[in-house]
């Protein structure tokens, strides 16, 4: 899995999932139609018209598969609507110096790569993009590298199990369902008093 793309830049630290998709859009019972609601309150004026100066409304960003953000991306609420909205907008990777735990898990389950960069490489990419906003980054998942013209080769960490699942299209729920015998054995030795609602 290789991603080659321009980069949309959102230089804020601590972007929380309430910004990524505001709570009032969580009343849906479906996973669909969330792309237009991504960053809704940052993206649209109160009359519903798009804010022309917000990065995700620019034609360049709309064509990007990669978002570069500040530290601790995806903090706050556990809503999986956040990666659903990001991927439905067209993003395949988010670059940051760290991610909130639940967001990271949710992203990996939705083929959205949460790429953790060292601080200096992160700052270098910001600087390169300032000089050349049209520059393209290349993400190589099997090799776990992120590169761009004139930049370093950034090796990024990723949970190897999640990586395999992504590359081989393994369904994690199916994987655990297959371990039925082990689960049943565990259940059998579990104190009955823990079956609170029985």
């Amino acid at each position: 899995m290789q991603i080659q793309s321009t980069v949309a830049v959102l230089p804020n630290d601590n972007i929380d999932t309430d910004q990524i998709i505001p709570a009032r859009f969580l009343k849906t019972i479906s996973k669909e139609g969330l792309g237009d609601q991504l960053f809704f309150d940052w993206r649209y004026n109160s009359d519903g018209s798009p804010k022309s100066d917000f990065v995700l409304n620019t034609p360049a960003a709309k064509a990007s598969k990669v978002l570069l953000a500040g530290d601790n991306f995806g903090c706050g609420s556990s809503r999986e609507h956040a990666p659903w909205a990001l991927t439905q907008y067209g993003l395949q990777a988010v670059l940051s110096t760290s991610f909130a735990d639940i967001f990271k898990q949710n992203s990996l389950k939705n083929r959205l790569l949460p790429i953790v960069m060292p601080k200096d490489a992160h700052a270098a990419l910001f600087a390169s993009l300032e000089k050349d906003p049209a520059l393209q980054v290349t993400i190589d998942l099997p090799a776990q590298t992120l590169t761009w013209p004139g930049g370093p080769v950034v090796e990024f960490p990723i949970d190897l199990f999640a990586k395999d699942c992504m590359l081989q299209g393994v369904d994690e729920i199916g994987y655990v369902l297959k371990q039925d015998a082990a689960i049943a054995a565990f259940e059998a030795q579990r104190p009955i008093s823990l079956n609170t609602l029985a």
């Binding site: 389950k109 729920i173 371990q179």
Partner: peptide
């Protein structure tokens, strides 16, 4: 947990 994990726990009573 996220919704995919909710589905996993409903189906298996376990989490990865």
């Amino acid at each position: 947990i996220g919704t995919s994990e909710v589905e996993m726990v409903l189906a298996t009573q376990c989490l990865l």
